[in-house]
Design a binder for these strands. Structure first.
Length: 444
RNA sequence: GUGGAUAUAGCGUAGUUGGUUAUCGCGUCAGAUUGUGGUUCUGAAGACCGUCGGUUCGAAUCCGACUAUCCACCCCA
């Protein structure tokens, strides 16, 4: 019986990996364009870090964490999200003292013990960014613009931005009171979980899917009517900035993040093409978190983007992924003597910086040619007794079928010039030429 | 944690009211006269029909339990 992978995990196999590389490339390039630097932190952290940041009543902390105790009394938890660990690392390494703003990004696996479903895994990969030190709505806009640029760079244009402000702690307590006043008379009609929510976290009531609760919640007060002057001003300014960028968004009072640390701006990018778990990106501002974690209080914000959901969305939209690189040369030896020579030639070609392979399972010529074709080799050279004796071989261009004679002594020189010609004949030369003229601002 | 669906070679599938060597496609491997790929043709390997138990002369097919996967609730990326 074969051992199978743990529930909710997935293998990123060679035939799929180019999708990941494509997305990881877009994501990190865009982040760096915006001035964000990569950070890498441990996969596990002290359990109390998540209890304090994500919130001890949140679902993530109460029932989804992978917590282990190592020798002794320590309790560690596989990170369920990126922000807490990154902020911890920035504090611990004194990065906040190097001046504001501080901007970091990361591409990391996260772990949550949930029931797997389309777009939801127990191990999932997340691209995230955090920005510390700016309370300005321009910072909120930067973060949202960065997320939008990533989605755009992936070729996605049908992912909707939902935007809301949940205010500061003061606005929110006013709002909670208002909600309680509104829902209290309907208490007996609400579903059981909503009854509990009414006492613990009335904002969650707005999210209930039960038709009865939904109907009652329809006329409930909305948060944006309860924002204090500062919070309202911040939110309005953010909308103006986004309008200036011509970024489309929908004001959505139902966006209530499940992680406790959020304040003011919260947003989600939602796809309708990948099933029930459509939130591709979620984030917002968390001005209170750094103080909560024992640092000197500073405004901050960020987002997390689910890479598997991003890829699912791209697949649904028929987006293109980077093609995997193919070998420049395949060497087809025939016989023992030729294989020795092929090994050495292959090594020389690789040292010159090219991707090359030669037969290592002793196949006949025909299967080797098939193999060379399958792996997409650009050139093939056959080495047999004839070639070794005469010191001369034929270099075959696999796209055109043309063969050029090569003296083995000069193989590298001939091969590299053939490869350059191939790049131009194959049309890539035109692309390069176009790119050059475009960058010079020329017409044609 | 709560529902619903599904389970046949590496992948995708057929299998009629239970009947003997379990389909087909892709992929893999090998051939189609001398040492050259993509197309075509031929052939081969590859499945204890998810697991265990039951009904029956006989089960991939019917029944039960279990397991796994998928989808939805919930929650979130």
């Amino acid at each position: 019986m074969l051992i199978k992978r743990p529930k909710g995990t997935q293998d990123l196999i060679p035939s799929q990996i180019h999708k990941w590389k494509t997305v990881e490339g877009i994501v990190s390039q865009t982040a760096e364009q915006f001035g964000f630097k990569e950070i890498r932190t441990p996969v596990f952290e002290d359990t109390s870090l998540y209890v304090r940041s994500v919130g001890d009543t949140s679902d993530v902390v109460t029932k989804e964490m992978y917590t282990v105790s190592s020798k002794g009394d320590d309790s560690f938890t596989l990170r369920p999200e990126g922000t807490a660990g990154v902020i911890r690392a920035m504090l611990e390494n004194g990065i906040m003292n190097e001046g504001f703003p501080q901007k970091v990004y990361y591409v990391i696996p996260c772990y949550r013990h949930e029931k797997p479903q389309a777009g939801r895994y127990r191990e999932f990969r997340q691209f995230g960014v955090e920005m510390v030190g700016s309370a300005s709505p321009y910072a909120d806009a930067e973060i949202i613009l960065l997320a939008a640029s990533v989605l755009d760079g992936c070729g996605l244009d049908n992912v909707e931005l939902h935007l809301n402000s949940i205010g500061c702690p003061e606005c929110r307590s006013n709002y909670r009171d208002a909600l309680k006043r509104y829902f209290e008379p309907h208490r007996s009609e609400l579903c059981q979980t909503c009854n509990e929510r009414l006492d613990k976290n009335p904002m969650r009531l707005l999210d209930c899917k039960s038709p009865i609760c939904k109907n009652i919640a329809k006329d409930a007060p909305i948060i944006t009517d309860y924002l204090c002057d500062d919070c309202r001003e911040h939110f309005e300014k953010l909308q103006k900035i986004l309008d200036g960028y011509e970024i489309k968004y929908a004001l959505d009072p139902k966006i209530v993040r499940g992680l406790d640390y959020y304040t003011r701006t919260v947003f989600e990018f939602i796809s309708n093409d990948i099933g029930a778990q459509g939130t591709v990106c979620g984030g917002g501002r968390y001005d209170g978190l750094i103080g909560e974690l024992g640092g000197q209080s500073a405004p901050a914000l960020g987002f997390g983007m689910g890479l598997e959901r991003l890829i699912l969305t791209m697949e649904a939209a028929g987006c293109e992924f980077e093609e995997p690189k193919t070998p420049d040369l395949y060497i087809a030896p025939m016989g023992e003597r030729a294989q020795e020579k092929s090994a050495l030639l292959c090594d020389a070609v690789r040292r010159a910086g090219y991707a090359a392979e030669f037969d290592i399972i002793g196949r006949g010529l025909k299967p080797q040619m098939r193999y060379a074709d399958k792996i997409g080799a650009k050139f093939v050279v056959v080495l047999g007794d004839n070639e070794l004796d005469s010191g001369e071989a034929k270099l075959k261009n696999m796209r055109t079928g043309a063969e050029t004679p090569v003296v083995l002594e000069d193989f590298l020189t001939v091969f590299s010039s053939a490869l350059i010609n191939e790049v131009f004949e194959n049309g890539l030369g035109d692309e390069i030429a176009d790119a050059v003229t475009e960058s010079l601002g020329g017409e044609e």
